[in-house]
């Protein structure tokens, strides 16, 4: 039976939700599910993966792999692929996977589909759907002449099965770097304690209608109550109110949370492209003609700086 290799990303041994999505999809494919996990806690994650259908997991239990290094990760994955000979490799949408998969694909004379939102695997053949022009339209992406089919999936797109009885054979591996041309010197953690926008289930986003940078505090307060992440329009990023890592849109992040609250964002085409596949969209804007209302589920015509504190209070009451 053909093999499918799944990247098992974890936090100190606990498998992250996007990898559980991949394991569930891999199990449904009918192929033999093989995993690969890197960093401290890999063996724990590998054993856990057995409950989600993995039969064998390569574990690189090494704290030197806790953080992404493009050369070391490449060497580790290449070793696994050479040994396991998968026909499909599934990766998450994390920044490290998005960096790693294309390089592996090139090495193995194969293609890669990044940021897929739908995945089907029949008789070992992968078909994906992916947003194009950051979601202005969709298309089918399939592989031809590609010995291995590499796919990175956008998070929150696939279901996760409940864990079941099952165990994976854990194969311990190690990797070392020779002639390394890259070294990670330092990692500066983001000030934000929140989930990355691309992983967030709820996003509250602000634009020019917030009037000044200091009013992003109103969004932060609302995000605290909702456990949300905070986004922004290009206009306020360009104005220097908030960093580019918070920008939602075609030249920022493409997001698809369950709930997207757009406060004081008029809805330029390039912003709408980045968020219009969100399940529920709430728009708050003073201009009833603002394009954001055409994409919104619920609309409130009003001044975001006045509505936001009221919302924060209301949700606080409701969720307490």
């Amino acid at each position: 039976m053909a093999n499918i290799l799944v990247s098992i990303e974890h936090t100190a041994g606990k498998i992250k939700s996007p990898s559980l999505e991949l394991l569930t999809a891999a199990k449904k494919s009918g192929m033999t599910v093989i995993g690969v996990s890197l960093g401290a806690g890999s063996k724990t994650a590998a054993a856990e993966a057995g409950k989600y259908g993995a039969t064998k997991v390569y574990a690189f239990e090494d704290a030197a792999l806790d953080n992404y290094n493009s050369e070391l990760y490449f060497n580790a994955y290449k070793q696994v692929i050479d040994e396991a000979k998968p026909e499909v490799v599934l990766g998450t949408g994390s920044s490290s996977q998005k960096d790693l998969l294309p390089k592996l694909a090139a090495t193995f004379s194969s293609g890669v589909v990044a940021d897929a939102t739908e995945l089907s695997i029949a008789n070992g053949k992968v078909t994906t759907k992916k947003p194009m022009y950051s979601g202005k339209c969709l298309a089918t992406a399939e592989f031809v002449n590609s010995p291995i089919q590499f796919v990175s999936m956008r998070p929150n797109q696939l279901s996760v099965d409940a864990p079941a009885d099952g165990s994976a054979e854990v194969i311990e591996k190690s990797v070392s770097g020779t002639d390394m041309r890259i070294a990670i010197k330092e990692i500066v953690k983001g000030a934000s304690k929140r989930l990355d926008l691309t992983e967030a289930n709820i996003i509250v986003s602000g634009g020019r209608g917030l009037k000044e940078a200091a009013n992003f505090k109103l969004l932060e307060d609302l995000a605290d109550v909702l456990g949300a992440s905070v986004g922004a329009s290009r206009a306020v990023v360009d104005a220097g109110w908030v960093p580019h890592s918070m920008q939602v849109g075609q030249t920022g992040k493409t997001v698809a949370p369950s709930l997207y609250i757009a406060a004081g964002i008029s809805g330029a085409i390039q912003h709408l492209a980045g968020m219009s596949t969100s399940k529920v969209i709430v728009a708050i804007n003073t201009d009833p003609e603002a394009p954001i209302f055409q994409k919104a589920t619920y609309g409130i015509v009003g001044d975001a700086t006045q509505v936001l504190p009221l919302l924060t209070e209301e949700f606080k009451k409701m969720l307490s």
């Binding site: 004379s109 947003p131 031809v144 590609s146 969209i281 994409k295 619920y298 015509v301």
Partner: peptide, 24 residues
């Protein structure tokens, strides 16, 4: 060429917005 992209489609239309009126 390893990946073929085809069958382009527009995203599903969203239902019309529910505008909530009244005092803030």
């Amino acid at each position: 060429i390893k990946v073929k992209i085809s069958n382009f489609s527009m995203p599903a239309e969203r239902a019309p917005v529910n505008m909530i009126s009244g005092e803030a």
